[in-house]
Each structure stands twice: as structure tokens, then as C-alpha cells.
Design a protein around this nucleic acid. Sequence first.
RNA 1: GGCCCUAUCGUCUAAUGGUUAGGACAUCAGCUUUUCAAGCUGGUAAUCCGGGUUCGAUUCCCGGUAGGGUCACCA
Length: 498
Amino acid sequence: MHDTKKVRVRFAPSPTGSIHIGNLRTALFAWLFTKKEQGSFIVRIEDTDRKRLEEDSLEKIFKTLKWANLGVDEGVYLDKDSKVFQKGDLGPYIQSERLEIYQKYIQELIEQGKVYHCFCSEDRLKDVRQKQQLEKSPIMYDKKCRNLSSEEVTIKIKNGEDYVLRMKIPENEIVEFKDEVFGKISVKTEIIDDQVLMKADGFPTYHFAVVVDDHLMEISHIFRGEDWIPSTPKHVLLYKFFGWEIPSFVHLPNVLGEDKKKLSKRDGSASVEDFVKKGYLPEALVNFLALLGWNPKTEQEIFSSEELIEKFSLEGLNKAGGVFNYQKLDWFNKEYIKLMPEDNFKEKILEFLPAQFRTKVQENLEIFNRLLPIIKERIEKFEDVTKMWEVGDLEYYFKQPNYELEKILWKDEKDLKQTKIYLEEIAKLLNKIDNFEAEEIKSKIWDYATEQGRGSVLWPMRYVLSGKDKSPDPFVLAEILGKGETLNRLQYAIEKIA
RNA sequence: GGCCCUAUCGUCUAAUGGUUAGGACAUCAGCUUUUCAAGCUGGUAAUCCGGGUUCGAUUCCCGGUAGGGUCACCA
């Protein structure tokens, strides 16, 4: 049963901060599905909670979408100057601009007797809840105002009492819906709360706004986190109240932290911005996230977004939540770094380098260029280059390192004088090389090293060039430093010994 | 506590009513012409438990257990 209705999926963030990693994954799946089905990917802003609005949220949200390369087809956009604009025939796409619409539809429900006025104060509700908690009975509204007479209601309204509008949940019914991921889910209406649909400030709650908007915007598939499953029956009931067609639900299993609980700020960086800052590539994060909770039924791991779109299907979606594994993300990122063109890589490295190192680089571009492959095989994410700098794994390429003389000696080798002879011989051999490349250098020195004992010769050579216990091999070091500087450092050591 | 959901190596996952239960990350070991990194090769490691159904269940059903989600005038 494949309906021919156009696929329209919305991503509906609330402007209450930056995009969470779980939100991005929801958006990604929604986007992949839309692209696969050649539908529309719509962005709607759900700003009905006036208390939690955050100033620059929209900017952050759209920046993240753009970074992740999820193109928007309809709805809300941000232009270059961060000005909001909207595109599409079924708007407005910002809920706070749709108040009259909600008003109109809630009126319909009032007339049908599907909702009722509730004058209970927040304090009273809190008390009720507290009592229920103590009694370990189900926690829900006690329906105090459900049967107020219309006269009572009129009087209270006249007196200026605040009220909300609650859903009159039918009694003794079973609400059933099909979820594309979890299958059939059914719930008795007894345990469904008389949900508030309109708040005292005249704004709709999420539950009311999504249903109205999704219907009016002709959304075909509702992608959202599995946390929404418990409130879906209320939404289904609303669709029924209005006699509207019920869209497909695609509830996505949660992204979990190491503790197996829903990923949150406590797990360190849960916001996408943090991953950007750390120097993860969007392709890597996207690839990783796509494979968390979905699988293409192949053993392939690396997918371009075109491939993801092509392979994507709802059947591959998993029910169980998945732990966000940073090590695997790092692996993906490394794979994508390997695939990067040299120029892009260089640019990115420059971007992440500490200022003082950037200066050095500009003075020694040749060395830096030769150093790039070394950096490439040693970082997982771009932030790592900062760490390389901090622990001194980069500095020695640009200036004569300081070191303790004894460390020049390889293992049991005791004779500094002998080591000096090795270094002098190395210098002599290097001097004869015109084409100063690692292979060439190696071929000149290798036999000598083998003759004398490899460690005894190569360790000092490497150590003298880097001043570090750990570093790339001496031939590569020499190539990066260049003939002149290599000989300088050899000479420096020889003199130091004498 | 009520309700809902979930359950394969440590992690992400594949598979089938009959397989040596496959792959990836991580881990361990070896190799790779000194150290490190990278690479290569190999190894360790999983069907939550108990009942059914069945010739045969990891797979289907039921129960338990464990974990998670949710119970706002937040989304």
C-alpha cells in the first residue's frame, strides 16, 4: 500500500537554543526520506512557549542545518543578514503568527463540545499532582472543571478569571495508531489526560498546534523522537474530532548517552555546535548519525549523502535506542579527512591552528606544506591539531628543539662519542644528496645504519632532528626540514656533544 | 507508581525456523626495516531468563527480568 500522496515532512524546532544532536538526527532522517520520495522538506518554527524563547536560536538552528547540508524546500528561512523570511503557500510557518488559525479551530471544538474551560489555578494543579504522587495513583488532571455548567463558565469568564481549554477525552475507548517504526500501539482513553489545548495566554499548546498545523500544511509523515509516543493518542483523538486524515507517524528511537539514558547536556557535547567547534566534518557526523538507528542492510559504512538518500527506507529504521559512540564518530571523521582534497585540508588546519603557530607557518610555508600529510594521519578531528601544537608535536619543525644530551643515546648504547661519529657520518652522507626526499635519504643511510646497528644510528638521528621521544621517522623528518636545516640540527648535536 | 516502548559481542548493527551467529568501532597480539602515527594480518568477545509452538528456535507466542521513555498552561 503505497499512497501516491505527495510526501511532505516538516522539521519543527523550537527556538529555545541550539540544535541538539538528537534533533539533528531526526531532521536528517526526515530529510533523507523526503529526498528519497522526492517530497518537500519543510521548516516550521514552534514558538508557542513564550517563556523559553531564546534570542539567537533561529540563527543557530539555521546555521546548523546549513552546516549539515540539509536543504529546505519550504517554510522558514534565514537570509544572509539573518533576517527571517518565509516561502510557501501554506504558511505562515511560524506558530506565533498563526494565532487566529488556532482560535478558529478551537472554536470549532468548543462548539462541538470536545473541549471545556478549566479555571483551576496552577497551584491547585500542583497540589493535585503532589497528592497523586503520594498516593501512587496515576498522575493526571482530576477533571474538576469538566462538568461546569455553561452558566458557571460564563460567569467566571465575566469575572475575568483566567482559564485554559482542555480536551474532553472520551470515556471507555481505545485509541489505536500505527507507527512506521514501532508498529501498532493502542491505549485506553482512561489513562489519557484531559490535555490543555489553549493556554491562558491565548497560545496553543504543542499538542494542539502540531495537529492543526500538520493538517493544514498537508504533512504526510510526522518524524519525531520516540518521547512523543505517549502523547500521540491525544493527537490521534484530535484528528478524529476534526474528522481529518491521520498522517503517518515515524517515531525515532532515542539517541542514548554512555549511561543508556537519552543523550543530554550531561553527556558533554550534545549540541551540534560543539561538534562543529571540535572540528568534525559535517559529512562524518551525518554518516555516523544516519547509521545510528538505521541500516542500509549492507556492510558498507561510508556513504555520501546521495548514497544515503538512495538507500534510505523506513524499513531500515530500528526500534531500540542507540548509544552515541564517540570513538566510532572519530573513526568516521578520520575516514572523511582522508578523503579531503589537499587544499581544503590545509585551509581547515589553518583555521584551527593557534594564532602563534599560524604566524610561524606563514614564515615557513614550504615546511608547512610538507608537514601536512603528517598532520593528516595524526588527527581525528581538527581540534586535535591544536592539541598537537600544545604538546609540542609541531613546534620542532619550525625551530631547533632543546633536548637533554643523554636522550640522544639509543637504549644500552653508552658511548656519546660513538654516537657523535654516527651523526657525523649521517651528515656526510646527507651532504651528498641532491634530491632531498625521504626515499632517497633512506637509501643513502640505511646500509650504514644496518651495519652499525639500526637503533644506534637511527634513534639519534631522529632524536636530534625532533628533540622528542616520539615523532615521525628520521627520513621523513629530514625531508620535511629540508637539507639545510637537517644538517644544521646534526651539526648542533655534534657540537653539543663535543 | 500508572501507561507505553525496547532487548544479538563493551558499542553500532547483520542474519536465518536448521549458519562455524556476519560486519564495523573499540580492545588485544603479531607484522610492517629504530620511537610514534598510519597501514596490514590475526585473536578475544553476543542472541537477558523461563516456559511453550516445533523434528529443530536467537528468530514465532506467553510470562518474568532488566533498561528506557512519558505522565506541565515545555516542546
